[in-house]
Simulated assay, not measured.
Amino acid sequence: MRNPRGIAGEFLSEWFAAEDTFALLLRHADPSCTRQRIVRQGDLLKANYLGWLAHENAHGANVYFSVNPLLSGAKKRTKDAIVEARALFLDLDEDGDRKMAAIRASDNVPPPSIIIRTSPGKYQILWRVCGFAIAEQEAMLKTLAVTFGGDRACTDCARVLRLPGFFNRKYTPACPVTLARDGIRTVYSPDDFRLEMPSLSLADSGTVNVHRPLGNATQSENDWAWVMAQLAAGVPACQIVQMLIALRCDKPNPLYYAVRTVDVASAVLWARKGISSEAIVRQLETRNQSLSKDRAAEIAATASRFVQRTQITHPGELICHC
Score class of each variant (00 low, 15 high):
7 I>F: 10
14 E>M: 13
21 T>K: 07
22 F>I: 05
31 P>F: 00
43 D>T: 13
45 L>V: 11
45 L>T: 09
49 Y>M: 06
51 G>A: 11
52 W>K: 05
57 N>M: 01
57 N>L: 00
63 V>K: 04
70 L>W: 07
74 A>C: 11
85 A>L: 02
93 D>V: 01
95 D>S: 07
101 A>K: 15
113 S>N: 09
116 I>S: 00
119 S>P: 08
126 L>Q: 07
144 L>E: 04
155 T>L: 04
157 C>H: 11
161 L>M: 10
169 R>P: 00
171 Y>Q: 04
171 Y>V: 06
173 P>M: 01
185 R>N: 02
192 D>R: 05
193 F>M: 09
200 L>P: 02
202 L>M: 12
211 H>S: 14
212 R>F: 08
213 P>R: 02
215 G>T: 10
219 Q>T: 12
221 E>V: 01
225 A>H: 05
235 V>A: 06
237 A>T: 11
244 L>N: 10
247 L>Q: 14
249 C>W: 11
265 A>P: 10
266 S>C: 10
267 A>L: 00
272 R>C: 03
278 E>W: 05
290 S>Y: 09
290 S>T: 14
292 S>F: 11
307 V>D: 07
308 Q>K: 15
311 Q>L: 14
313 T>H: 13
315 P>W: 03
318 L>P: 01
320 C>T: 14
320 C>W: 09
321 H>C: 13
